[in-house]
Amino acid sequence: MGLVALVVVGLLVADLRYSQLGTARAFLDTLLIPVHTVADIPAAIGRWQERHLRSRSSLMEDNDHLSRENLVLKGRLQQMASLQANNARLRALLNSSALLRDDVLVAEVIGVAPDPVRHQLLLDKGGSDDVYAGQPLIDADGLMGQVIEVSEFTSRVLLITDATHSVPVQVNRNGVRAVAEGTGSLDLLEVHHVAATTDIAEGDLLVTSGLGQRFPIGYPVATVTRVERDPGQAFARIEARPAAALDRARHVLLVFARGDVAEVNAEAGAGG
């Protein structure tokens, strides 16, 4: 019994303090993929129904909607090309290298952490697709989180709302820097240690600042929903709502930052 206690405490410390169990964990995760697959069956049936048992009219409606959206996006993209060329020329004038667009890989969410306090996703892409620990994850609307563990065919993602996650951000309007921390609630981030006099207001968009050299610069993270300034407190109490659909997204994008994130971010900072 004493031995049992010793082993368990040893494992706890090894994992918690020194993160020494990554390989063993990845191996076991691969071994347990069948359990995830079986647990996914109800959702898979739901998807199959959605795909095969839909009325013609709803499909046509969808199609119409997508064509319209596509037209709008293409329209915006026309300007994008000239703006990008413009940007590259201006950056050349400033003697800084051109910002490259990041590559992305589409992944599918195949599992969520069963514990409601733990905000993690399991993706169907892993080491065999060059996914790496620390890789940022986005959806159509904003930053979702980062990869924390890679096994051969799957990877585990920590969402930005997990209580153990923090992301360096800046206010898009004026560049004020802060750190957005997860709270364990899926629609709430808290921004701590911002002086009460700082210019930050409801409705401000927070984007990744690139500090900390983990996330590429400029991805939307959250919108400020509440700013409370108590004269008795040194810091303002700021709440924000994540931009990404953290509990709904089925398909997500893994971002491969071109080159060294730190270098690209430094260039962007120097140029902007």
Binding site: V8, V9, L11, L12, A14, D15, L16, L21, A24, R25, L28, D29, L32, V35, H36, A113, P114, D115, R118, Q120, E149, R156
Partner: peptide
Amino acid sequence: VLEGAVIG
């Protein structure tokens, strides 16, 4: 491992 909890 399944839960993504700390091992132990």
